[in-house]
């Protein structure tokens, strides 16, 4: 599983990235958590609010910082 966090490096983008890493660790998933900070690449996902979370190429959340439990729920 590949999880990508879309964000241009602002505080909430970093928070979402940290939460995603924590969620993956807590669930013991075999997943890679990436960051995408290049705005040109981000726009290819067609999101209008950041930060956003992409799981295996599909945008699952945008415009808000999910907490660890919410991410765990999304991943299971």
């Amino acid at each position: 599983m590949t999880i990508t966090i879309l964000g241009t490096g602002c505080a909430s983008c970093k928070a979402l990235f940290a939460n995603a890493q924590a969620a993956v660790a807590q669930l013991g998933l075999d997943a890679v958590v990436n960051k995408e900070e290049d705005i040109v690449k981000i726009m290819e996902y067609n999101v209008m609010a950041l930060p956003a979370m992409v799981v295996d190429g599909k945008v699952v959340a945008k415009g808000r910082v999910l907490n660890v439990d919410q991410i765990k729920e999304l991943l299971t």
Binding site: I39, M48, L50, P51
Partner: peptide, 16 residues
């Protein structure tokens, strides 16, 4: 009240 980093994605979303 978007996080300032959302301004650009919104901008692109609009012109697109």
């Amino acid at each position: 009240p978007f996080c300032s980093c959302s301004s650009i994605p919104l901008f692109i979303g609009f012109v697109r």
